[in-house]
């Protein structure tokens, strides 16, 4: 039987959750025995080359590109996992939610203390740039998400236990210390 295939991505996140994946230390050698990686920053495969079993999503959706990538993941993965606070509830990027986008952009590009050189009051508007959304959305408000692993970042032991349980079909018993929101 071929190995289960995993894809991962970081949307509106800080890559901390991916750092936490690497934090499984030498168990990464066991992981490679257990699974194969497809599209992921870990192996630098940029586009899906085959259907995957598990998609791990870091970060919520703050722009149109995030939504596009998340929908691609839903199409190409049987199971999607929201990894970390940003994927689950928007996280720190969602601190702008409740403040109108116009107000946020004006503060960032016109009003902030470090933008004194922007005397022409230019707002980034290149058509190549993804459109910013009205607010940052948790992933499960865009597509169906199957599992959630909270934490900022989620503990490496939690990620390891969850992925192994999913791949082997064993029951997942999570110790109290591993589920944290910070």
């Amino acid at each position: 039987m071929s190995k289960p295939i995993i894809a991962t991505t970081s949307l509106a996140g800080c890559f901390g959750c991916h750092m936490s994946i690497l934090d499984i230390d030498d168990r990464i050698l066991q992981l490679i025995e257990l699974v194969e990686f497809n599209k992921s920053p870990i192996d630098d495969i940029k586009t899906f080359t085959k259907q995957c079993d598990i998609g791990i999503i870091e970060g919520g959706c703050c722009n149109s590109e995030n939504v596009h990538v998340l929908k691609e993941f839903r199409k190409n993965c049987k199971i999607l996992i929201s990894l970390g606070e940003c994927a689950i509830m928007g996280g720190l990027p969602a601190m702008r939610n409740g403040i109108p986008v116009k107000e946020c952009l004006e503060e960032a590009y016109w009003g902030g203390p470090t933008v004194g050189l922007n005397t022409e009051k230019i707002m980034p508007n290149d058509p190549e740039l993804p459109m910013i959304l009205d607010k940052v959305y948790p992933c499960h408000e865009i597509v169906k998400i199957d599992y959630y692993l909270p934490g900022c970042a989620p503990r490496a032991d939690l990620i390891w236990a969850a992925v192994v349980a999913l791949v082997t079909g064993d029951e997942l018993n999570i110790p109290y210390e591993l589920v944290k929101f910070d």
Partner: peptide, 22 residues
């Protein structure tokens, strides 16, 4: 509040977020 979230193993709230400005 967070400790009760841990006690009940709240992985994600079942309700949509309000994100009200306060």
């Amino acid at each position: 509040l967070q400790a009760l979230g841990y006690k009940y193993q709240m992985m994600v709230p079942r309700f949509p977020y309000v994100f009200e400005r306060r």
